[in-house]
Write a protein that binds this DNA or RNA. Sequence first.
DNA 1: GGATTAACCAACCGCGCTGGTAGGATTTCC
DNA 2: GGAAATCCTACCAGCGCGGTTGGTTAATCC
Lengths: 174, 174
Amino acid sequence: MIFSSKAEYGVRLMVELGRQTPEQPTSLKAIAEAERLPLAYLEQVVARLKKAELVMSARGAHGGYWLARPADEITMDEVVQALEGAIAPMECFVSEHTERVLCSHDADVGHQHCATKLLWMRVQGGIARALQTTTLADLVEFSLREAPSAPALAVHPVVTSTAATAGAAALPAV
Amino acid sequence: MIFSSKAEYGVRLMVELGRQTPEQPTSLKAIAEAERLPLAYLEQVVARLKKAELVMSARGAHGGYWLARPADEITMDEVVQALEGAIAPMECFVSEHTERVLCSHDADVGHQHCATKLLWMRVQGGIARALQTTTLADLVEFSLREAPSAPALAVHPVVTSTAATAGAAALPAV
DNA sequence: GGATTAACCAACCGCGCTGGTAGGATTTCC
DNA sequence: GGAAATCCTACCAGCGCGGTTGGTTAATCC
Protein backbone atom coordinates (compact mmCIF):
# COMPACT_ATOMS: atom_id res chain seq x y z
CA MET A 1 0.00 0.00 0.00
CA ILE A 2 1.07 3.51 -0.65
CA PHE A 3 -0.34 5.15 2.43
CA SER A 4 -0.55 3.79 5.92
CA SER A 5 -3.58 4.05 8.13
CA LYS A 6 -2.19 7.28 9.53
CA ALA A 7 -3.03 8.98 6.26
CA GLU A 8 -6.47 7.41 6.11
CA TYR A 9 -7.33 8.32 9.68
CA GLY A 10 -5.79 11.74 9.44
CA VAL A 11 -7.64 12.68 6.28
CA ARG A 12 -10.92 11.49 7.72
CA LEU A 13 -10.22 13.53 10.82
CA MET A 14 -9.54 16.60 8.73
CA VAL A 15 -12.74 16.09 6.77
CA GLU A 16 -14.70 15.88 10.00
CA LEU A 17 -13.16 19.12 11.17
CA GLY A 18 -13.96 20.64 7.80
CA ARG A 19 -17.61 19.85 8.30
CA GLN A 20 -17.78 21.73 11.58
CA THR A 21 -18.23 25.43 11.99
CA PRO A 22 -14.79 27.01 12.06
CA GLU A 23 -13.03 28.06 15.25
CA GLN A 24 -15.33 25.84 17.26
CA PRO A 25 -13.42 23.04 18.94
CA THR A 26 -14.42 19.46 18.27
CA SER A 27 -13.19 16.81 20.66
CA LEU A 28 -11.17 13.86 19.47
CA LYS A 29 -13.52 11.58 21.31
CA ALA A 30 -16.44 12.71 19.20
CA ILE A 31 -14.45 12.18 16.02
CA ALA A 32 -13.21 8.80 17.15
CA GLU A 33 -16.73 7.64 17.81
CA ALA A 34 -18.15 9.06 14.61
CA GLU A 35 -15.44 7.48 12.49
CA ARG A 36 -15.08 4.44 14.73
CA LEU A 37 -11.37 4.88 15.23
CA PRO A 38 -9.28 4.20 18.33
CA LEU A 39 -9.04 7.40 20.34
CA ALA A 40 -5.54 6.85 21.69
CA TYR A 41 -4.18 6.25 18.24
CA LEU A 42 -5.96 9.29 16.86
CA GLU A 43 -4.06 11.36 19.39
CA GLN A 44 -0.81 10.45 17.70
CA VAL A 45 -2.26 11.19 14.31
CA VAL A 46 -3.62 14.59 15.23
CA ALA A 47 -0.33 15.48 16.88
CA ARG A 48 1.28 15.41 13.45
CA LEU A 49 -1.39 17.64 12.01
CA LYS A 50 -0.88 20.08 14.80
CA LYS A 51 2.86 20.10 14.40
CA ALA A 52 2.31 20.97 10.76
CA GLU A 53 0.03 23.81 11.84
CA LEU A 54 -2.93 22.44 9.98
CA VAL A 55 -5.11 22.27 13.07
CA MET A 56 -5.26 24.22 16.28
CA SER A 57 -6.36 23.01 19.67
CA ALA A 58 -7.75 24.05 23.04
CA ARG A 59 -7.18 22.03 26.15
CA GLY A 60 -9.49 21.29 29.01
CA ALA A 61 -13.20 20.74 29.17
CA HIS A 62 -14.99 21.74 25.97
CA GLY A 63 -11.64 21.84 24.29
CA GLY A 64 -10.82 20.15 21.03
CA TYR A 65 -9.45 20.75 17.57
CA TRP A 66 -10.35 22.94 14.62
CA LEU A 67 -8.86 23.79 11.28
CA ALA A 68 -6.11 26.37 11.35
CA ARG A 69 -7.19 27.66 7.93
CA PRO A 70 -10.29 27.49 5.74
CA ALA A 71 -10.68 24.12 4.10
CA ASP A 72 -10.30 25.50 0.60
CA GLU A 73 -6.87 26.83 1.48
CA ILE A 74 -5.58 23.45 2.61
CA THR A 75 -4.24 21.17 -0.11
CA MET A 76 -4.18 17.46 0.53
CA ASP A 77 -0.55 17.62 -0.36
CA GLU A 78 0.13 19.34 2.94
CA VAL A 79 -2.09 16.99 4.89
CA VAL A 80 -0.58 13.82 3.54
CA GLN A 81 2.91 15.20 3.90
CA ALA A 82 2.27 15.95 7.55
CA LEU A 83 0.90 12.49 8.17
CA GLU A 84 3.22 10.33 6.13
CA GLY A 85 6.29 12.39 5.57
CA ALA A 86 7.61 12.79 2.07
CA ILE A 87 5.92 10.60 -0.48
CA ALA A 88 8.46 9.01 -2.74
CA PRO A 89 8.25 5.99 -4.97
CA MET A 90 11.62 4.71 -3.84
CA GLU A 91 13.95 4.99 -0.90
CA CYS A 92 16.65 6.63 -2.98
CA PHE A 93 14.27 9.41 -3.94
CA VAL A 94 13.92 11.08 -0.61
CA SER A 95 16.56 13.37 0.75
CA GLU A 96 15.95 13.82 4.44
CA HIS A 97 17.22 17.33 4.94
CA THR A 98 16.23 19.14 1.82
CA GLU A 99 13.01 17.23 1.18
CA ARG A 100 13.99 17.58 -2.43
CA VAL A 101 13.59 14.62 -4.64
CA LEU A 102 16.48 13.09 -6.39
CA CYS A 103 17.97 9.73 -6.98
CA SER A 104 20.86 9.17 -4.63
CA HIS A 105 22.18 6.40 -6.83
CA ASP A 106 23.43 9.03 -9.20
CA ALA A 107 26.11 9.83 -6.69
CA ASP A 108 27.45 6.28 -6.68
CA VAL A 109 30.83 6.01 -8.22
CA GLY A 110 30.75 3.81 -11.24
CA HIS A 111 27.02 3.42 -11.18
CA GLN A 112 25.21 3.63 -14.46
CA HIS A 113 22.61 6.26 -15.02
CA CYS A 114 19.78 5.05 -12.86
CA ALA A 115 17.52 3.29 -15.33
CA THR A 116 14.47 3.42 -13.13
CA LYS A 117 14.73 7.13 -12.49
CA LEU A 118 12.55 8.19 -15.40
CA LEU A 119 9.76 5.90 -14.29
CA TRP A 120 9.78 6.90 -10.64
CA MET A 121 9.87 10.55 -11.60
CA ARG A 122 6.74 10.16 -13.65
CA VAL A 123 4.96 8.25 -10.93
CA GLN A 124 5.99 10.80 -8.36
CA GLY A 125 4.71 13.56 -10.61
CA GLY A 126 1.36 11.88 -11.00
CA ILE A 127 0.91 11.55 -7.28
CA ALA A 128 2.06 15.07 -6.53
CA ARG A 129 -0.35 16.50 -9.07
CA ALA A 130 -3.26 14.60 -7.58
CA LEU A 131 -2.45 15.71 -4.06
CA GLN A 132 -1.75 19.32 -4.93
CA THR A 133 -4.89 19.86 -6.96
CA THR A 134 -7.21 18.46 -4.34
CA THR A 135 -8.19 20.63 -1.41
CA LEU A 136 -9.75 19.63 1.85
CA ALA A 137 -12.83 21.55 0.76
CA ASP A 138 -13.18 19.18 -2.19
CA LEU A 139 -13.31 16.21 0.15
CA VAL A 140 -15.70 17.91 2.53
CA GLU A 141 -18.05 18.68 -0.29
CA PHE A 142 -17.71 15.14 -1.61
CA SER A 143 -18.55 13.69 1.78
CA LEU A 144 -21.57 15.94 2.17
CA ARG A 145 -22.90 15.08 -1.24
CA GLU A 146 -23.84 11.56 -0.23
CA ALA A 147 -25.00 12.14 3.32
CA PRO A 148 -26.05 15.75 3.62
CA SER A 149 -28.87 15.11 6.06
CA ALA A 150 -26.70 13.21 8.47
CA PRO A 151 -23.98 15.34 9.99
CA ALA A 152 -21.39 13.03 11.43
CA LEU A 153 -21.23 14.93 14.67
CA ALA A 154 -23.47 17.04 16.77
CA VAL A 155 -21.75 19.96 18.44
CA HIS A 156 -22.39 18.41 21.82
CA PRO A 157 -22.49 14.84 20.74
CA VAL A 158 -24.78 12.46 22.52
CA VAL A 159 -23.49 9.56 20.55
CA THR A 160 -25.59 6.49 20.51
CA SER A 161 -25.34 3.79 17.93
CA THR A 162 -28.43 5.18 16.22
CA ALA A 163 -26.74 8.42 15.40
CA ALA A 164 -24.12 6.68 13.32
CA THR A 165 -26.51 4.51 11.36
CA ALA A 166 -29.13 7.19 10.82
CA GLY A 167 -28.09 8.55 7.47
CA ALA A 168 -26.65 5.52 5.77
CA ALA A 169 -27.86 6.15 2.27
CA ALA A 170 -27.77 3.56 -0.43
CA LEU A 171 -24.43 3.62 -2.17
CA PRO A 172 -24.10 3.58 -5.92
CA ALA A 173 -22.17 0.76 -7.51
CA VAL A 174 -18.61 1.72 -8.35
CA MET B 1 7.85 4.10 0.13
CA ILE B 2 5.47 3.21 -2.60
CA PHE B 3 7.42 0.46 -4.23
CA SER B 4 9.59 -2.14 -2.58
CA SER B 5 13.00 -3.14 -3.80
CA LYS B 6 11.36 -5.88 -5.83
CA ALA B 7 10.06 -3.26 -8.21
CA GLU B 8 13.38 -1.46 -8.35
CA TYR B 9 15.37 -4.61 -9.00
CA GLY B 10 12.80 -6.02 -11.38
CA VAL B 11 12.65 -2.89 -13.49
CA ARG B 12 16.41 -2.68 -13.66
CA LEU B 13 16.52 -6.31 -14.68
CA MET B 14 13.99 -5.67 -17.43
CA VAL B 15 15.96 -2.69 -18.67
CA GLU B 16 19.09 -4.81 -18.84
CA LEU B 17 17.23 -7.41 -20.88
CA GLY B 18 15.89 -4.64 -23.08
CA ARG B 19 19.42 -3.58 -23.91
CA GLN B 20 20.35 -7.03 -25.14
CA THR B 21 19.66 -8.40 -28.56
CA PRO B 22 16.32 -10.12 -28.44
CA GLU B 23 15.90 -13.89 -28.11
CA GLN B 24 19.45 -14.17 -26.86
CA PRO B 25 19.56 -15.42 -23.29
CA THR B 26 21.30 -13.37 -20.65
CA SER B 27 22.23 -15.08 -17.41
CA LEU B 28 21.00 -13.76 -14.09
CA LYS B 29 24.55 -13.86 -12.82
CA ALA B 30 25.66 -11.36 -15.43
CA ILE B 31 22.78 -9.05 -14.58
CA ALA B 32 23.38 -9.40 -10.86
CA GLU B 33 27.01 -8.39 -11.29
CA ALA B 34 26.29 -5.55 -13.66
CA GLU B 35 23.63 -4.09 -11.39
CA ARG B 36 25.34 -5.21 -8.20
CA LEU B 37 22.35 -7.04 -6.90
CA PRO B 38 22.21 -10.28 -4.87
CA LEU B 39 21.81 -13.15 -7.30
CA ALA B 40 19.66 -15.35 -5.09
CA TYR B 41 17.21 -12.57 -4.47
CA LEU B 42 17.05 -11.73 -8.16
CA GLU B 43 15.90 -15.26 -8.77
CA GLN B 44 12.76 -14.59 -6.80
CA VAL B 45 12.22 -11.34 -8.61
CA VAL B 46 12.61 -12.78 -12.07
CA ALA B 47 10.31 -15.64 -11.17
CA ARG B 48 7.48 -13.14 -10.90
CA LEU B 49 8.30 -11.68 -14.27
CA LYS B 50 8.30 -15.10 -15.80
CA LYS B 51 4.98 -16.02 -14.23
CA ALA B 52 3.54 -12.87 -15.79
CA GLU B 53 4.96 -13.98 -19.15
CA LEU B 54 7.08 -10.87 -19.52
CA VAL B 55 10.31 -12.83 -19.84
CA MET B 56 11.21 -16.25 -21.17
CA SER B 57 14.04 -18.50 -20.09
CA ALA B 58 16.32 -21.32 -21.12
CA ARG B 59 17.97 -23.64 -18.64
CA GLY B 60 21.41 -25.13 -18.63
CA ALA B 61 24.75 -23.79 -19.79
CA HIS B 62 24.41 -20.60 -21.84
CA GLY B 63 20.86 -20.36 -20.68
CA GLY B 64 19.29 -17.25 -19.28
CA TYR B 65 16.42 -14.87 -19.72
CA TRP B 66 15.12 -12.63 -22.49
CA LEU B 67 12.11 -10.46 -23.10
CA ALA B 68 8.98 -12.27 -24.18
CA ARG B 69 7.94 -9.28 -26.30
CA PRO B 70 9.63 -6.25 -27.85
CA ALA B 71 10.36 -3.58 -25.28
CA ASP B 72 8.04 -1.06 -26.86
CA GLU B 73 5.12 -3.42 -26.40
CA ILE B 74 5.68 -3.77 -22.68
CA THR B 75 4.13 -1.10 -20.50
CA MET B 76 5.61 -0.50 -17.07
CA ASP B 77 2.15 -0.99 -15.76
CA GLU B 78 2.47 -4.70 -16.50
CA VAL B 79 5.96 -4.92 -15.09
CA VAL B 80 5.18 -3.22 -11.81
CA GLN B 81 1.96 -5.16 -11.45
CA ALA B 82 3.86 -8.42 -11.86
CA LEU B 83 6.44 -7.39 -9.30
CA GLU B 84 4.36 -5.69 -6.67
CA GLY B 85 0.85 -6.88 -7.26
CA ALA B 86 -1.94 -4.37 -7.54
CA ILE B 87 -0.91 -0.85 -6.70
CA ALA B 88 -3.49 0.78 -4.50
CA PRO B 89 -3.27 3.77 -2.24
CA MET B 90 -5.13 2.03 0.55
CA GLU B 91 -5.89 -1.45 1.73
CA CYS B 92 -9.60 -1.05 1.15
CA PHE B 93 -8.97 -0.27 -2.49
CA VAL B 94 -7.78 -3.62 -3.64
CA SER B 95 -10.17 -6.42 -4.34
CA GLU B 96 -8.22 -9.65 -4.50
CA HIS B 97 -10.27 -11.56 -7.05
CA THR B 98 -11.38 -8.96 -9.51
CA GLU B 99 -8.30 -6.74 -9.29
CA ARG B 100 -10.82 -3.98 -9.70
CA VAL B 101 -10.46 -0.98 -7.54
CA LEU B 102 -13.13 0.04 -5.17
CA CYS B 103 -13.52 1.08 -1.60
CA SER B 104 -14.68 -1.79 0.52
CA HIS B 105 -15.80 0.60 3.22
CA ASP B 106 -18.74 1.45 1.06
CA ALA B 107 -20.17 -1.92 1.90
CA ASP B 108 -20.09 -1.30 5.62
CA VAL B 109 -23.50 -0.97 7.09
CA GLY B 110 -24.00 2.43 8.58
CA HIS B 111 -20.73 3.76 7.30
CA GLN B 112 -20.73 7.22 5.87
CA HIS B 113 -19.69 7.80 2.33
CA CYS B 114 -15.98 7.20 2.46
CA ALA B 115 -14.58 10.70 2.66
CA THR B 116 -11.13 9.73 1.55
CA LYS B 117 -12.31 7.90 -1.53
CA LEU B 118 -12.14 10.87 -3.85
CA LEU B 119 -8.55 11.55 -2.89
CA TRP B 120 -7.30 8.00 -3.21
CA MET B 121 -9.05 7.66 -6.56
CA ARG B 122 -7.21 10.66 -7.90
CA VAL B 123 -3.88 9.46 -6.57
CA GLN B 124 -4.47 6.04 -8.01
CA GLY B 125 -5.35 7.58 -11.34
CA GLY B 126 -2.16 9.60 -11.39
CA ILE B 127 -0.03 6.55 -10.76
CA ALA B 128 -1.87 4.40 -13.26
CA ARG B 129 -1.47 7.02 -15.95
CA ALA B 130 2.26 7.29 -15.34
CA LEU B 131 2.75 3.53 -15.45
CA GLN B 132 0.56 2.94 -18.47
CA THR B 133 2.09 5.62 -20.63
CA THR B 134 5.66 4.53 -20.01
CA THR B 135 7.03 1.56 -21.93
CA LEU B 136 10.11 -0.47 -21.24
CA ALA B 137 11.54 0.93 -24.46
CA ASP B 138 11.34 4.41 -22.96
CA LEU B 139 13.47 3.33 -20.02
CA VAL B 140 15.95 1.49 -22.22
CA GLU B 141 16.39 4.55 -24.38
CA PHE B 142 16.73 6.72 -21.30
CA SER B 143 19.41 4.48 -19.85
CA LEU B 144 21.33 4.43 -23.12
CA ARG B 145 21.25 8.19 -23.46
CA GLU B 146 23.62 8.73 -20.58
CA ALA B 147 25.93 5.79 -21.04
CA PRO B 148 25.77 4.78 -24.69
CA SER B 149 29.40 3.76 -24.91
CA ALA B 150 29.27 1.51 -21.91
CA PRO B 151 26.97 -1.44 -22.44
CA ALA B 152 26.21 -2.88 -19.06
CA LEU B 153 26.89 -6.40 -20.21
CA ALA B 154 29.01 -8.17 -22.74
CA VAL B 155 27.35 -11.14 -24.38
CA HIS B 156 29.89 -13.43 -22.83
CA PRO B 157 30.68 -11.40 -19.78
CA VAL B 158 34.18 -11.42 -18.42
CA VAL B 159 33.22 -9.23 -15.57
CA THR B 160 36.01 -7.57 -13.73
CA SER B 161 35.58 -4.52 -11.61
CA THR B 162 37.01 -2.41 -14.41
CA ALA B 163 34.16 -3.24 -16.73
CA ALA B 164 31.66 -1.76 -14.35
CA THR B 165 33.47 1.48 -13.74
CA ALA B 166 34.50 2.05 -17.32
CA GLY B 167 31.70 4.21 -18.61
CA ALA B 168 30.79 6.21 -15.54
CA ALA B 169 30.07 9.52 -17.17
CA ALA B 170 29.63 12.70 -15.23
CA LEU B 171 26.03 13.11 -14.22
CA PRO B 172 24.14 16.36 -14.66
CA ALA B 173 22.73 18.01 -11.58
CA VAL B 174 19.08 17.24 -11.06
C1' DG C 1 29.71 -39.42 -19.46
C1' DG C 2 31.26 -36.38 -16.24
C1' DA C 3 31.88 -31.59 -15.23
C1' DT C 4 30.04 -27.14 -15.54
C1' DT C 5 26.63 -23.78 -16.03
C1' DA C 6 22.51 -21.89 -14.96
C1' DA C 7 17.44 -22.06 -14.13
C1' DC C 8 14.26 -23.55 -10.64
C1' DC C 9 12.43 -24.43 -5.95
C1' DA C 10 11.44 -24.32 -0.88
C1' DA C 11 12.51 -23.18 3.46
C1' DC C 12 14.24 -20.09 6.84
C1' DC C 13 15.37 -15.74 9.34
C1' DG C 14 16.69 -11.10 11.48
C1' DC C 15 15.12 -6.51 11.55
C1' DG C 16 12.30 -2.51 11.47
C1' DC C 17 7.99 -0.57 10.91
C1' DT C 18 2.94 -0.47 11.56
C1' DG C 19 -0.86 -0.08 14.39
C1' DG C 20 -1.88 0.08 18.09
C1' DT C 21 -2.25 0.07 23.94
C1' DA C 22 -1.13 1.80 28.76
C1' DG C 23 -0.62 5.12 31.95
C1' DG C 24 -0.08 9.23 33.41
C1' DA C 25 0.55 14.62 33.49
C1' DT C 26 -1.46 18.98 32.51
C1' DT C 27 -4.94 22.39 31.41
C1' DT C 28 -9.57 24.29 31.46
C1' DC C 29 -14.47 24.70 32.51
C1' DC C 30 -18.50 24.23 35.69
C1' DG D 1 -12.60 19.89 43.22
C1' DG D 2 -14.01 17.00 39.68
C1' DA D 3 -14.85 16.14 34.95
C1' DA D 4 -13.33 16.64 30.29
C1' DA D 5 -10.10 17.26 27.39
C1' DT D 6 -5.28 17.67 25.32
C1' DC D 7 -0.64 16.20 25.69
C1' DC D 8 3.31 13.09 26.45
C1' DT D 9 6.18 8.88 26.83
C1' DA D 10 6.91 4.32 26.80
C1' DC D 11 5.92 -0.21 25.40
C1' DC D 12 4.62 -4.20 22.49
C1' DA D 13 2.93 -7.96 19.19
C1' DG D 14 2.75 -9.12 14.46
C1' DC D 15 4.22 -9.00 9.91
C1' DG D 16 6.36 -7.89 5.69
C1' DC D 17 10.82 -6.76 3.64
C1' DG D 18 15.10 -8.11 2.04
C1' DG D 19 17.47 -11.19 1.87
C1' DT D 20 20.29 -16.23 2.66
C1' DT D 21 20.87 -21.34 2.42
C1' DG D 22 20.82 -25.45 0.27
C1' DG D 23 19.46 -28.04 -2.77
C1' DT D 24 17.33 -30.23 -7.58
C1' DT D 25 16.88 -30.33 -12.47
C1' DA D 26 18.11 -29.37 -17.22
C1' DA D 27 21.28 -28.23 -21.02
C1' DT D 28 25.88 -27.76 -22.89
C1' DC D 29 30.96 -28.58 -23.23
C1' DC D 30 35.02 -31.40 -23.31
